[in-house]
Amino acid sequence: MSKRPISDWNERYRHISFWWATVFGAGLLKPAPGTWGSLVAVIAGYYLINTGISFTLLSSLIVAITVLSAFAIDHIEKVSGIHDAPEIVIDEVAGQWIALLPFYFFTPMLYDYMVAFLLFRLFDIWKPWPIGLIDRKVTGGCGVMVDDLVAGLFAAVVILAGHVLLF
C-alpha cells in the first residue's frame, strides 16, 4: 500500500466510499485538505450543538462515523492500493467532533469553537506521543481513523482543563 493522492485512483468518482471518505468532496479542496475537513466538521458541530443535539446522540454519531469510515477506507485501500490519501478527511470529522464534546459541560462562546479547531489541528498535524505511534503502527481504515480520534481526545482534555483552570 502506498501513500499517494487519491487522484491516482481512476474510478474514484463511481464509489460511495470515495464520497464518504472525502466528506462529499471537502477533502478535494486545496491546500491542506485536512484543515478543510476539520473546518466543515467544526461548522457542522457548531450547528448540531446549537440546535440541541444531545451529548449521547453526538457521541453515537462519532461512533457510527468511525465504524462506517473504517470500512469505507478499507474498501478504498483494497480497490485502489492507496493508503491514507490526503483527500480522506472523514477522520477529521470524527476527531474534531470529539474535540467539541467538552462544550456540553459549559456554555461555549464562538471563540471556544475556534480554539477547539486550532487545538485539534495542532495535535493532528504535530502527532505527539502516542498519536504519532498510532499513526505509524495501526493499519487500514482503523489506522486512518484512530490517530484523529486520539488527537480529538487530546484537544478535548486541553479544552476541559483550560476551562476548569481559567474559569
Rank of each mutant, 00 (worst) to 15 (best):
T56Y: 13
H83T: 09
A32S: 14
G152D: 04
Y47F: 15
W126V: 14
T51A: 04
T51P: 00
G132Y: 11
I82L: 11
F105L: 15
L165D: 01
L153Q: 02
F55Y: 14
H15A: 08
A26R: 04
F18W: 11
A99I: 03
G140P: 10
W126Q: 04
S38R: 06
V115E: 11
G152F: 03
K30W: 08
A85N: 08
W129Q: 14
T56L: 12
I88S: 07
I82W: 09
G141A: 14
S54W: 06
L57S: 02
I65M: 10
S38G: 06
L57Q: 01
G27Q: 05
P128G: 09
R4H: 01
H15P: 08
L165R: 03
P5C: 00
I82T: 07
H163Y: 15
A21K: 02
P86C: 12
P102I: 03
L58Q: 10
I73R: 02
Y113T: 12
L166S: 13
L58F: 05
I16R: 11
L39W: 05
I131K: 08
R121D: 10
Y104E: 06
W19G: 02
W129M: 11
R12V: 11
L48N: 07
A64N: 00
T139S: 15
V42A: 00
L122G: 04
L39F: 15
A21D: 02
A94F: 09
G37I: 05
Y46V: 09
S54F: 06
I6P: 00
G95P: 07
N50E: 08
H163K: 15
G152Y: 03
L110W: 10
T35A: 11
R136W: 00
G37Y: 10
F18V: 00
V144T: 14
H75V: 00
F106I: 06
G140W: 13
Y47T: 10
F55V: 02
G95T: 08
L119G: 09
S80G: 09
V144E: 08
W19D: 05
A85M: 02
R12D: 13
L29R: 06
L29Y: 05
S54G: 11
D148H: 05
I98A: 01
S80Q: 07
D135K: 03
D135P: 11
W20S: 01
R4Q: 14
N50C: 06
K30M: 14
M1Q: 12
L28E: 14
T51D: 06
V79C: 06
H75I: 00
F120Y: 09
I49H: 13
T107C: 05
A21S: 15
R121L: 03
S17N: 09
R12M: 04
V157K: 02
W9I: 07
V93A: 14
F71T: 06
P108C: 14
V150A: 08
G45A: 10
H75W: 10
V93R: 07
L28C: 13
R4M: 13
L100G: 01
V115H: 09
G162N: 05
